[in-house]
Design a protein around this nucleic acid. Sequence first.
DNA 1: TGCTGATATGCAGGCGGGTCGATGCTGCTG
DNA 2: CAGCAGCATCGACCCGCCTGCATATCAGCA
Lengths: 125, 125
Amino acid sequence: MEYVGTALAEMTMPQISPLAGEPIERADAERLAGVLKALADPARLRLLSLIQSAPEGEACVCDLTAPLGLSQPTVSHHLRILTEAGLLEREKRGVWAYYRLVPSAIATIADLLTPPRKRATKKAR
Amino acid sequence: MEYVGTALAEMTMPQISPLAGEPIERADAERLAGVLKALADPARLRLLSLIQSAPEGEACVCDLTAPLGLSQPTVSHHLRILTEAGLLEREKRGVWAYYRLVPSAIATIADLLTPPRKRATKKAR
DNA sequence: TGCTGATATGCAGGCGGGTCGATGCTGCTG
DNA sequence: CAGCAGCATCGACCCGCCTGCATATCAGCA
């Protein structure tokens, strides 16, 4: 498909220049928008929240369907988008697929939005 | 229209519980998603960036149309969405409409995303 | 007052995306 | 080796939204 395309991961989101500073370039804007688009959905925000607060910090699809009130295919769909955005990682154990947050992925996004701080990123070029 | 409806402003975004902690509630997820949806667009990210880096931290529509490569009505449309989301404020001086960032609006969003930190927000209720 | 320029709004076209039901796949189990 | 349970994928529907063109508003000016 053609969603985000692992924006955060291989797109190397950390290279996206922050919102602050000089005007953001077109490409950066599109990458950042891609990741934010993955976040900008109630169901997906709740998924992240549910997974993050789960016992081992992980959860399988069957645990997430009920709380969200969405069908299993729809939940899998959202999990896929979050995974491809680099926000979740998937591990299949037996019949179950366990999802957990990618350590500092969300924090990285927050840093890109936050203007003046310890940002170590050199926007190079 | 029926977009975000001044999500950040009167919706009092600061009352939205952060992503971290206990599972976020449906209403909070929708409010946060609403604001993020306003951010999750390349054109709007560039608008925020352009305005923020403008001389006086403000810019009028006529200054933003060219850099974006979008029509004037489209730019006005995006500015409206950002304004209604509580990210921009508008001031009309004469024939021109000047837009500037709402001081700590974006930072507030970043805080809601960032998990464990100085968050002072008491989720009350 | 009438004209011009800066913005906002209405309208419409086209695409992207959220959702579900049906189906395919794959390990586990009897 | 059937049968079943957990997930992913497919196809389809429908709504939301980005965009531009046309038009309405409104302020400044001759």
